[in-house]
Nucleic acid binder design. Structure first.
Lengths: 212, 212
DNA sequence: GTTGACCCAGAACAAATAGTCGGGTAGTAT
DNA sequence: ATACTACCCGACTATTTGTTCTGGGTCAAC
């Protein structure tokens, strides 16, 4: 199948993107027809079919305003993919911010959260201030299986959760967690230590007030 | 008006949120009715009215799938506000991630972007590694008028953009920008320096791959 | 008790919306 | 020439979807 896209198809994709940006939901056939400047919605049908065929968008048959832009579509537009922001989760389990101490203890939370692919944690304490994570910040954690030395991780030590920098090098203690604050000392790896995920985003205190 | 929300109302708000997460667009009345587990869509009408009345959501009359979650709604749910990322902010100008150097120079971008309330920047350089901002990370910047000493800010120095920590204290040079890397020295404030906004979120390299 | 807010049942209606049918034009490749 | 693709026109239909109506039940506040 020809994966190339024509100017008109790209026009429509931009129209859909802009509508989502402006209103928060996709346009109807009629709205797309209007923006395209044509008088028949057959054109819209044709163009949408092509776009879907080429995996730029995805639609649900007979459903109003059901066009969703796929990753390939964002790539084509050269825009930041909105979908990841909208859907960093996989399952439908709601993501709840939970409190976590900077001194690696006292998290009264069920483990269900930790099965999520991505979830939020509110940080308490000052053990990571030199890594730009301050008291009150919220971190977005992504579950991982493999870890790279130097990454900020969420660890579980005998049931207690903590956020630290993960280090693995050729000098003792070889594998350990490093608080980013000279006040605290490193935590060597033990058999009770388990790495849960990686911090992929730090939402500064004040983030939540940022919208309006 | 009573701003409190009932359990059922919050249920519905969660249902709407989840639907957007899963599909990319809001649910219909029928879908919401189904998820609520009731047999009449009058319930949906009632609950939506209350939610809109209290500014948790916004709808467009007679338009299918037109429920949009407002910032207050995200706050209630304890979820990251999708709105800023989507750009529902003010104008319809798309938010483009732009490259910005850590050595405060060379940004060929129009100033239009800087009028956005919230936008994304990709960081180049190592001048802020001690603040947890590494080469390749993307920061979310919110336009601000007032700045607090210690905040990470986006500054414009004679047309060149840079991200640094803003410091204002009682010792010379009193007001300056501080790179979070001992390799670099501070930048005293001049009349050519302008503070644009505050970094409210740091998306680590790898964030974009986190979804799917 | 009475009231009112909140929530639900069941049905009918009206508007919005997606999809269809039968064409037409222009360009391009075979 | 012929065939093919991309795009468009105009009118129509079928379905989805939002809205309205009448009524009932529960629970807490007054």
């Amino acid at each position: 199948m020809d994966k190339r896209i024509t100017k008109r198809q790209k026009d429509l994709l931009s129209i859909v993107y802009k509508h989502i940006i402006d209103t928060g939901y996709p346009p109807t056939f009629e709205e797309m027809r209007e923006c395209l400047g044509v008088s028949s919605n057959q054109s819209v049908v044709d163009l949408l079919s092509k776009l879907e065929e080429k995996s730029f968008i995805k639609r649900t048959e007979s459903a109003a305003r059901s066009v969703a832009i796929l990753p390939l579509g964002y790539e084509l537009l050269g825009k930041p993919p909105l979908a990841p922001f909208l859907g960093v989760t996989t399952a439908g389990i709601p993501i709840e911010p939970i409190e976590i101490s900077g001194e690696w203890q006292q998290v009264s939370q069920d483990a269900a959260l930790l099965r999520e692919e991505v979830f939020l944690l509110k940080i308490r304490g000052d053990s990571m201030i030199n890594a730009g994570i301050d008291d009150g910040d919220v971190v977005l954690v992504k579950s991982e299986k493999e870890f790279v030395s130097g990454h900020i991780v969420l660890a579980d030590i005998d049931g207690e959760k903590t956020v630290k920098r993960f280090i693995s090098d050729d000098k003792p203690p070889y594998v350990y967690l490093k608080p980013e604050n000279p006040k605290y000392s490193v935590i060597p790896a033990t058999d009770k230590m388990r790495l849960v995920g990686r911090v992929i985003s730090v939402l500064k205190d004040g983030y939540w007030k940022s919208a309006k």
